[in-house]
Design a protein around this nucleic acid. Sequence first.
RNA 1: GGCGCAUUCGUCUAGUGGUCCAGGACAUGGCCCUCUCACGGCUAAAACAGGGGUUCAAGUCCCCUAUGCGCUACCA
Length: 494
Amino acid sequence: MIPRFRFAPSPTGGLHIGTARTALFNWLAARSVGGKLILRIEDTDIKRSTAAYEKSIIEDLKWFGLDWDEFYRQSERNWIYQRFARELLDENKAYRCFCTPERLEDLKKRQYAEGMMSKYDNRCRELSGGEIEKNLKEGKKFAIRFKVEDGKEIKFCDLIRGEISFRSEVIGDFIIIKSDGTPSYNFAAVVDDGDMKITHVLRGEDHITNTARQILLFKSLGFSLPSFAHISMILGKDGSKLSKRHGATTISQFREEGYLAEAIGNYLSILSWAPRDGEEIFGIRDIMGKFKIPDISKSPAIFDVDKLKWINGIYIRRKSTEELARLCTPYLIKEKIIDKKDLGNEKVMSKIVKGASALRDNLKVLNEFPQYIKDLFREKIAGYSKDAVEILTLDTSAVVLQSFLGRLESELKSFDNNQDIDFNEEKSKNLINMIGESLKELKIKGKFLYMPIRVSITGKTHGPELPRVISILGLKNCIQRVNQTLEYIKNNKL
RNA sequence: GGCGCAUUCGUCUAGUGGUCCAGGACAUGGCCCUCUCACGGCUAAAACAGGGGUUCAAGUCCCCUAUGCGCUACCA
């Protein structure tokens, strides 16, 4: 028998990072043993579910690199829930409950006040045939409740946690069909897991308690029990449930901020699971054979953005320059550093490629790209930082800048007037070396050589390697900027 | 309140009774590389929640307490 796993999101929001991890683990577990993965949309809550969320969840799952073998939507399967509910009704394992929401609310309040666990008081359990008939005739709305016998022990062996048991009296008769005719979560899930012949239920820890109810249903419905495994929750930095307060929580938010699918998959894999060899950097496909459900950690995990960033940086460094440039471009548009119509402009595009190559090692998240590169897209220097001004104040700096400017100008002359000037890294490097050579006698070298040059074309003391900066800016812009800096020195009498 | 689950460095984890004065990774500090920032390399500091058992021996097994989280819906 081939193992069958399922992933069952409800489309009441985007794909949450925790839900994505559950999806990933199901995928990993299924693919590791050659099993099938079923995607099931649990949209029985007609008030909160939307088609838009469903679409976004599916898109995110695909972007994430997951695939599945079968697809179902619970809202299209109502007839089957009705059929099984009818069966339970006929077998006297379930009954119609005519209690109003108000009465139930009241009951709950009273029980809570007495310090008791809230639980249905079984009022409609023993309604006579006549009373039911009468209520039905009056058109009273009803829900269908499942009978839970007291005094039973419900046990199951969780693949991750070991044996877990509950006593049936803490459960109470629960609703399987709501008064609007839709099935409740516990019922729909069990009917589907049974009907779809699911062998492994791998889901979030928040379902442990539900498992007790569901086991009762599996048995009453005559289905064989699947194996259960409950994955711990993902918590925020402060130990509370991960929420908007902690930053991005859905896959699409992470994608928009500039996290790579590979990085998220990798990070989520090592959150609650560790390969035997201790290696932390791997693709989700690399661990397919190694992933074992019992190895999943029991304790909750705090989501560490810093570690995700570290991993994201690693995958960014593995990208080709062209691919990285392509990935970074949308962020440039978003920050209005370039315009959409620049996408066809070869000069702009080559500048982005050069920038991507220069900044690859600095990037941790794609959306950091604009802040690093924006200065190099301007015509002029926007301003000089404090430590940059200090560099300019040095006596030797003026000498270096004159020499630099001279070199740039003579270099420019070597090109024909209307020729497209591509001043690459190699040439930039040579140019700097030549300056160094000519200033050797003055013993200007190292920091005293490079820093004034850097400051004169960027206004800052930090940035990518100098030859790269020069190459990105191009000869003309460099000349313009050095002149601007010379002007600045003069005006401020540095 | 009831029930359930969890608890190893700040964080993620390795550890399945002796090889653990507890190993790795992120983050942090220092050093090296280096024009700077990063990258890379080296290094330092940093943990078995507390208390009882069981055992020759406990991070590892059992019990209690504490703390955190989840469920306690005609949400999923």
